[in-house]
Design a binder for these strands. Sequence first.
DNA 1: AATATAACGGAACTTTTGTTCCGCAAATAT
DNA 2: ATATTTGCGGAACAAAAGTTCCGTTATATT
Lengths: 193, 193
Amino acid sequence: MARTKQFDEEVMLNNAMLFFWHKGYNGTSPQEILDELKLSRSSLYDTYGDKRSLFISALKRYRSSVTVEIIEFLASAENIPEALKTLFQRTKAQCFVGEEKRGCFMVNSKVELAPHDEEVAAIVKENREALENAFTAAIKRGQEKGQLSKDNPPRSLARFIMNNLWGLSVHSKSGADKKVFDDIIRITLSVIK
Amino acid sequence: MARTKQFDEEVMLNNAMLFFWHKGYNGTSPQEILDELKLSRSSLYDTYGDKRSLFISALKRYRSSVTVEIIEFLASAENIPEALKTLFQRTKAQCFVGEEKRGCFMVNSKVELAPHDEEVAAIVKENREALENAFTAAIKRGQEKGQLSKDNPPRSLARFIMNNLWGLSVHSKSGADKKVFDDIIRITLSVIK
DNA sequence: AATATAACGGAACTTTTGTTCCGCAAATAT
DNA sequence: ATATTTGCGGAACAAAAGTTCCGTTATATT
């Protein structure tokens, strides 16, 4: 009955996310998105609504892919210290793509927008809580298995871990080299052991 | 010979800094600055140059006031664990002004701009290095005085401390309550003791 | 093959952004 | 008091941002 889209909606949303990740919300113009995605203006507006809607969709997509992946990884981990180490190494790697200091899309977005956009603030908050719960559960299991020290409550440790993961995102924007990351990761992990 | 300015250049720069802190660089228009500072367009452009120059001046001002204050505080501290605790408490307090999730101006700025603006990247990098050196020196003194554990090299600990301070800035944008801050601060400080 | 429906290309338009410019006003130094 | 210089108010403007609209094109269904 009707013409089909000449692009994959999910792929394009992912590309838009990468671009917002790269340049931020206010730093990105519709024209740049069109050029980057090689999409026509009307296709973009018909499919995703206005710029802000597109951004919100991108942020939700991050939540349902990257965040979900971390949560599932933690939920299925047997060796918790090992799993945490892996997450820190991955974060370190993903903070940089080539020479670009990209940090984390969720961190970038909340720093730029959370104080002024209630919807962003809500997504960001839910994301934080979901991650905190996932870390808490994993750390609790690790403590019960005797893999982690019981010096601190699981939830406190979860918050501490997340604080350091997010700190790395900021460090990646600060011109810090990889050795800085290694120092931080080593000391952070030594706390929970 | 000539008319005098009807405003205090430093006070206005400080107000501009607070506004950029509040709304970010790309989120702030010249018009908003004029309204906020109650300044005429020509006064603003004559005094500070264009918007970007004003922003750079604001960032440098932060460097030479807030950062310098921290460095001097660390340099003159006798009781290092106490001094670090004070810095964390201050950071916690300054992350919020009323209900606003303001974070840290340097952190906000680097997350938004460092990857795309070389001058910002340079300021941010120098700021990081200066702070790292100040923390390193203070921690070294603390270790020599027997106030701090020698389990880790001073510079590694300095990086770890800064990572947690910056992490708090991100946490303030995430809808975390004060209890989250307290957990993080308690565990972070327990590492160095 | 015809038809209905949605996608696409791009013109067009409104607002906002970021800046410059000009004429008048005010204060200082003589 | 006057001349000189700088500051100020605001008009004006070019460019970009953000969005809408419309005519054409393609395709899935009948």
